[in-house]
């Protein structure tokens, strides 16, 4: 059976063993094998970009799936718990959720303020049983939540710009390879002095492989970039929502 990569295997054969009726140029790899070093470099860089963008896409999809599941669980735990310490205990198993990071930052800040409030009493303890520690600065707690949200957003958006970069430059790299290939092809045509289709077509086809490879790398990158950007916006909205909810609860329960 004739396979698509037949010309590649023909390279490995000794010249005497090769089939004289089927030279290079009849398949994709034959075209690549015949192309110039620069064209091969272009194709290699596009392959690397494709590998990277697919790896990032798959990883981020997996990450967002994990985030969505754990965020839902975290919200459930948070709303059912009567104490922040119970939520804090659950955070270890829900570390993938960005809300966990926001909550922990707020919890640490809240604890720090309450501890200082306790220390300011001078006795190191409560003066009476009715007295309870009070929040010293709601703004400071807000800022801590804001910082945590910012860190979580950076985590969410990490590696996504690589997709945008791939989507932008891969077609241009491919186009560059094509233009270069066509230049080489026309030089060859000029040397042979023939303008027949049999002479022109292989060179053009060889050059166009680079454009095809560029589009192969760019199209999935565009799709996944838009998809992941949309998911990031949804999670960012959930983070803002949770931070405000946390602030309200803290103000309601720990205001002096």
């Amino acid at each position: 059976m004739r396979i698509f990569g037949y010309p590649a295997f023909a390279i490995l054969q000794a010249p005497g063993e090769s089939d004289p009726g089927s030279g290079f140029g009849t398949g994709l790899l034959g075209l690549i094998a015949e192309s110039s070093l620069l064209s091969q470099g272009v194709l290699l860089s596009l392959l690397l970009l494709s590998i990277l963008s697919w790896a990032i896409s798959v990883f981020k999809l997996w990450q967002f799936r994990q985030i969505e599941g754990q965020t839902e669980t975290f919200i459930d735990v948070f709303r059912k718990s009567g104490r922040f310490s119970e939520v804090q205990a659950a955070c270890k198993s829900l570390a993938a959720s960005p809300l966990t990071g926001v909550f922990q930052a707020g919890y640490v800040e809240l604890n720090a303020q309450l501890r200082r409030s306790r220390d300011d009493d001078g006795s190191g303890g409560y003066r009476d049983a009715a007295a309870r520690p009070a929040l010293r600065s709601l703004d400071a707690l807000d800022r801590a939540l804001l910082r945590a949200a910012s860190v979580e957003m950076v985590r969410l958006e990490r590696h996504v710009p690589v997709l945008a970069t791939t989507a932008s430059i891969a077609p241009f790299i491919g186009l560059f390879g094509t233009v270069w290939g066509i230049i080489i092809a026309f030089q060859g045509i000029g040397e042979t002095g023939s303008t027949s289709l049999a002479v022109v077509a292989p060179g053009i086809a060889d050059a166009l492989v680079a454009t095809a490879a560029g589009l192969f790398a760019a199209i999935p990158a565009v799709y996944f970039y838009n998809h992941l950007t949309q998911k990031t916006k949804v999670v960012a909205s959930a983070i803002d929502d949770f931070a405000l909810e946390f602030l309200n609860i803290a103000e309601r329960n720990f205001s002096p």
Partner: peptide, 29 residues
Amino acid sequence: REAASELLVERAREGDGLRRTLLGSSAAH
């Protein structure tokens, strides 16, 4: 140091396991 700084730095530095998917992507290609 801010109270939550240590926690935030730790979360920001967390590895994300991209290396595994890179290997998987290479294998798929």
